[in-house]
């Protein structure tokens, strides 16, 4: 397993991750359950069921969203 760092954008901030990091690992840093949370990689929704099978790559743009007060 290659652990060289790669740079991604996470909610608009630069993050360095080990190469091969998958989306579920990254989201788990934010929230234990993932309830009420959705993620997009490079402007495409990734369903929760596929987070563990979604490896992140250099330069990926990741958005992790939830519901807040609004409207």
């Amino acid at each position: 397993m290659n652990s060289l760092p790669m740079a991604v954008s996470l909610n608009g901030e630069r993050r360095e991750l080990a190469t091969g990091t998958t989306l579920d690992t990254l989201v788990a840093e934010f929230t234990a359950t993932g309830a009420g949370v959705a993620a997009a990689v490079n402007e495409a929704v990734v369903p929760r069921s596929r987070w563990a099978q979604t490896p992140l790559g250099e330069g990926d743009r990741i958005e992790v969203l939830t519901a807040v007060q609004g409207g």
């Binding site: 909610n11 009420g36 958005e63 992790v64 969203l65 519901a67 807040v68 007060q69 609004g70």
Partner: peptide, 17 residues
Amino acid sequence: TTVAMRRLDPTVQGSVL
């Protein structure tokens, strides 16, 4: 009741949901 979708902020306490 409506809610908005925004970037997850792990420092925010309590949830409208």
